[in-house]
Each structure stands twice: as structure tokens, then as C-alpha cells.
Design a protein around this nucleic acid. Structure first.
Lengths: 321, 321
DNA sequence: AAGTCAAATAGATAATTTCTATAATAAATC
DNA sequence: GATTTATTATAGAAATTATCTATTTGACTT
């Protein structure tokens, strides 16, 4: 393997050292002369002057070092070499003509895989239904959702490992483009058995031991921000446990390990079935936003842009309802 | 069919009206940037300056109306469109690079069909052994010998229906290139039973009725030329019959219809077996030459030139023996 | 031999390619 | 956070190339 590695650059060098004057335009001129058996007719067809055609053929003849046409006064007759060149030239011209079409089509193509990095809440509770709706509209689209915490998603977007992310916080990085997505309400929850009161102040609530997400989490960060606004730090809070997933936190709260403050999307089912109990905080509203994030320097494939427009449309629709 | 005929010119028009600026050089620049993930490295590889690379990429981006690379400071990342373009570009570059090789190889190719127009004598009595020798040397060569009279062979060469001919006379046409081939002796023959003497003068010989070839024939023309030199026209000769082939003339002579003057190559076997008898003409030597003929304006494929050189070599060899 | 048709040549102009030098920008380092 | 470094973009100039028109050359036709 090491040998082939060291030889490779030389091969490239060789390949590019070969001066290839031949261009597609010249081949088109040749093909036209070949088909018309006339320089003048080719000139009319390609809308160039006859001397220009002569020039092109001369250049090709010099480059290939062989006569391509026998000029016999009224007609020209292609040589054996010209016959061979014609089929090759047609292939090249066709391929080159296709390029524009293929790229043009690609620019409008609504199929392929949409890879999105998502933090826990959007990845687990929001993306699935979005994916379903989008895929219904564009059946040839498949999704790959990479779930991690907000910090890692942001890093991957910055390192160009991901083109698109959804996270629960706004970043200060100038390179990141934020597209507001959806509002989320953070809700204080406890086990139904552990706390009887269903309304209290934030300061009262944090007297109970709490179960939290780990540090990179958007939910955790949002919580810290809210407490900080009230002059409270996490050091004032009695932490009963830290878990790496929202589900684990929910299990811990259910088991009575402590209270928590979680996304409404994460606990909507548990509240409905009385597995968890909402503690209304009388003095605070804990809203936060989710954002789609992209790197400002990256060009998004059409499919990704369409997806983002779809999201924007949904947002507008739901606002109007 | 008429419909497709009338539509055809429009299609050509459309095809060539599409302005296709894209050239192979530009694609090579693109491919290098794509592989190196760098404009600067591509510049080194192709031995162009970095701004030139920038220009080429810009031109391609404008023509295809899409961004090809996201420029991110230290690296560039190809877009989805660039990925697609790369595979297409490599195909085109490879084909274009092949052209030179393929044409180059064709120029030295010693295979294929060698079509030669030959008049009766060379086509029947000289070409077969030549063909055999040449094919032994170059086994991938096949022959097609078109036999007709000298006049028609010459016409076909002039009308570009044949690239190469062998005939028994020199033409006055300026367009024809003559390559001397082999000497032939015309021999006066008769049926062994009809004439007892085996030597006489030309004037005595033409007192006997003669059997001749048709007018276009080289042998006939040669005979006329010889007679003319002696102040004799064909009107002085009693013509017993005119036949369209040398074989027919021979049969007629054998049958005692008359005498004839024929190529030594045509009667060599008959003389050996005493089917025909040579009448030595004491006062004349009737030599003539055969020539390979080509049109001066036509380019001969390499195979044809090789064949002619082979012929020339044989001539030199046989002279030296 | 004159007329006609087709390609080649010459000379001029416009377009393009490419260069060097420099600016702008982003990442890495201190 | 300022500085250095690496990379692409821009500007302006020079060289090359593509193209044109007008004319010449060459060959077939009459």
C-alpha cells in the first residue's frame, strides 16, 4: 500500500502533463464536417465562417498528426482515421451535452437521503411526525436522524459532518445560521405520589431534590439560564441524579428520586396518564425555542432547502390555526 | 420516411444551437480541484496559476448555474452537484485522452480489408500469389479483389470508388499516381495444329485471323499500340472474334478460331502442356508494364501503404536474383 | 478557355486565457 | 484578541486564440 501511495502523485502528473488541446467545440466542428462532407455546409450548420472551420480541422489534424479529410475540390472525403474519430467524437459530444441536463435535473431533484442531526427532544419527539409528513409528500426521500446532545450536533455542523441540525438553543457562533422552528414549554414535573401541591413558586420547587440531564443538553442549559435569570445557580439546587437521556430522567422522576423540569413534548403522554404530575410554577413561564441550524458557508442540496421550506410552511400554518 | 427526412435538419440545428462553452480543459481543472480539495494544489498539479483555477471553476459554476465548491478557508468542499459532475467529467476526460491513442494506433494498424481493383491479367494471374505472400506476413489482413478491365478500374479510382488499382497501362490523367509493378511480355500464340512454323515476322503473323479482347482491355490497348508503331491498324487485321475475358480468348485460340497475342502470365501453363503454341515474332519485342494506380489526392490507409512497400520490396528482390 | 464552386490563406479584430501582484478572508497560533 | 499563515478572489496587463471579411488558389463544368 505504501508503494502505491508514493507512485500516485507521479501518475497524476503524467496524466495532466499530456497536453490535450482537443476541445469539445473542435470535435463538434469535425463531426459536422464529417456528416456534411463539406466545410462550407458545416460552417452554415454551426454558424461559423468557412475559414474558421478550416482552422479547426487543421488544428485537429495537427494534434492527431494525421489527415482527416481528403480535399477534392467539390467534396471532401474522410480518411480512415476520420471514420474512427467520428464515433469517438460523437460519444464525447453526447456526454458533454448530457452534463448540463444531468446537473440541471439534480438541482431540482427531490429524492435521496436527508441526514439531520437532532438533539434529544426534537430528535425523539418532534422529528418522527415531521419526517412522516415530508415523506408522504415526497415518497422518494429517506431520512437519517442522528440523535445526540445539542453541543455535539452544533460541533458536527461546524466541522461539516452534518449539513443540518435541530437543537434546543441558540449558538453564539457567527458561522451558524439559525432557523427558528417551534416553541417548547419547559414544565416542572414530579411523581404524583411525592408532592401533593400542584402549584408553587420556583423557589419553593427547587427545595425538592432534582434529577437533571447532563451538561451538553439543551434542556439542561435552558434550565440553567432560567435559574440564572432569577439569581439562582445549580449549586443552590439539591441534585438527586444526572442522566444521559430524557427517558432516564423521566424514569427517575417516576421512581420518586426527585423532581425535574422537562420539555412539554417529552412528558405529554405521562401527564395524560397521570404517571407524572405537573407542578405549575406560579411566578415563571419557561418557554424556549428550537432551531434548525446550518453552516453559513455550506450550500444545501435542493432537497434540504425544500425540507426547510416545508418546515417554515408548517409553522405558518399552525400559527394561523 | 419523408417526414423524418424533413425534420432532420431542424434537429441538427437544435443540437448545434445549444451553446456549450464547456471544454475538456475546464473539466480537467475541475477534476483536479475535486480530487485535491484545493484550488492551490490543483494549480500545482496542472501547472497553472491559482487565479486561473479560480477562473475556470467560476466559469463552470456560471455555465452550470450552480455552486460547485463551498470555500471554507483552509479547504473546499464539493457540493452535491460537484459530486455528480465529477464522475461525468472523468468519463469525458478519459474518452478524450483515449482519442489520441486510438487514432495513433489506427495509424499503424496492419489489419482490416485491402480492396484492390485489378484488370484481368494482374487480377487473375498475379494478385493471387501476392495476396498469399502478404497475408502470410500479416495474417489479420483480408483481401477483396475487384476484377474488371483496365478502363473501368481507372475510372473507379478516379471516382474514389477504389483506393488502389493494378492495370496493364499507363494513364495520361494527371490525378493518377502510377507505381511501376512488373514487366509482362506479350506473346503471339496459336493452336499447335493450325500453324506449323514457329517463327515469323509480325506482318506475316497478322495475315492469320485473330481473336481479341474487348476494347477497354489493357492487353488489347497494348496490342493496338504495338501495331500502330509499325504502321498497322486493327482494320488491317482479320478479326475472327472478340471476347470479354482472357480465358474465352484462350479457348477460342485452342479451338482454332484464330491466333492471338496474349500476356505470358496468361498462357504460361498452356505453353508448358502444348495446348497452345508460341509463335516467335522475329522482328518485335512486345513488353509492357503493369502499374499500381492511386488517386494523387487520396490518403491511403497505413495498410495500403504497407502493401505497396511490400510490392516494391519484392520487385527489388527479384531484380537482384 | 471561362465560369463556378469549395477550401486555403492573409490580415485584422475581438475574445479568452493566463499571468503577476495584491486584497480579502478564514483558520491557527501566540 | 492580535498576529501569523494559508487559501481563494480580484484587478490589470500580456499573450494567445478564435473568429471574421476579403482574397487567392485549385478543381470541376460547360
Amino acid at each position: 500500500m505504501e508503494i502505491s501511495y508514493s507512485i500516485l502523485p507521479k501518475l497524476f502528473c503524467y496524466k495532466y502533463a499530456t497536453i490535450l488541446t482537443m476541445d469539445i467545440h473542435g470535435l463538434k466542428v469535425f463531426a459536422s464536417v464529417f456528416k456534411n462532407k463539406s466545410f462550407t455546409k458545416a460552417a452554415e450548420e454551426i454558424h461559423l465562417s468557412q475559414p474558421t472551420i478550416s482552422d479547426h480541422i487543421k488544428a485537429l489534424e495537427e494534434e492527431l498528426d494525421c489527415k482527416l479529410f481528403d480535399r477534392l475540390g467539390r467534396t471532401v472525403i474522410p480518411t480512415k482515421e476520420a471514420e474512427a474519430l467520428y464515433s469517438l467524437a460523437e460519444e464525447i459530444i453526447e456526454k458533454a451535452t448530457n452534463v448540463k441536463d444531468i446537473i440541471g435535473q439534480l438541482k431540482k431533484e427531490l429524492k435521496g437521503e436527508l441526514t439531520i442531526g437532532a438533539s434529544t427532544i426534537p430528535g425523539t419527539y418532534l422529528m418522527p411526525s415531521l419526517m412522516a409528513a415530508f415523506q408522504k409528500k415526497y415518497p422518494s426521500v429517506s431520512f437519517q436522524i442522528f440523535i445526540s446532545d445539542s453541543k455535539e450536533i452544533a460541533e458536527k455542523v461546524l466541522k461539516h459532518e452534518l449539513l443540518l441540525g435541530v437543537i434546543g438553543m441558540k449558538l453564539s457562533n457567527e458561522q451558524i445560521h439559525h432557523i427558528p422552528f417551534i416553541e417548547d414549554e419547559l414544565i416542572a414535573v414530579a411523581s404524583p405520589h411525592s408532592i401533593k401541591t400542584s402549584i408553587m413558586t420556583l423557589r419553593d420547587f427547587i427545595k425538592f431534590p432534582m434529577v437533571l440531564r447532563e451538561e451538553g443538553s439543551g434542556t439542561r442549559r435552558e434550565l440553567e439560564r432560567i435559574l440564572e435569570n432569577r439569581g439562582i445557580t445549580l449549586e443552590d439546587v439539591k441534585i438527586a441524579g444526572i442522566f444521559g437521556s430524557t427517558d432516564a430522567v423521566k424514569q427517575a422522576v417516576k421512581a420518586g428520586l426527585g423532581t425535574s423540569i422537562l420539555s412539554e413534548y417529552a412528558v405529554i403522554d405521562e401527564l395524560k396518564h397521570n404517571i407524572l404530575k405537573e407542578i405549575k410554577l406560579s411566578d415563571i413561564q419557561m418557554g424556549r425555542k428550537f432551531y434548525f441550524i446550518t453552516h453559513k458557508k455550506r450550500t444545501l442540496p435542493f432537497l434540504y432547502n425544500t425540507f426547510l421550506q416545508h418546515i417554515k410552511a408548517i409553522k405558518t400554518d399552525s400559527k394561523n390555526i
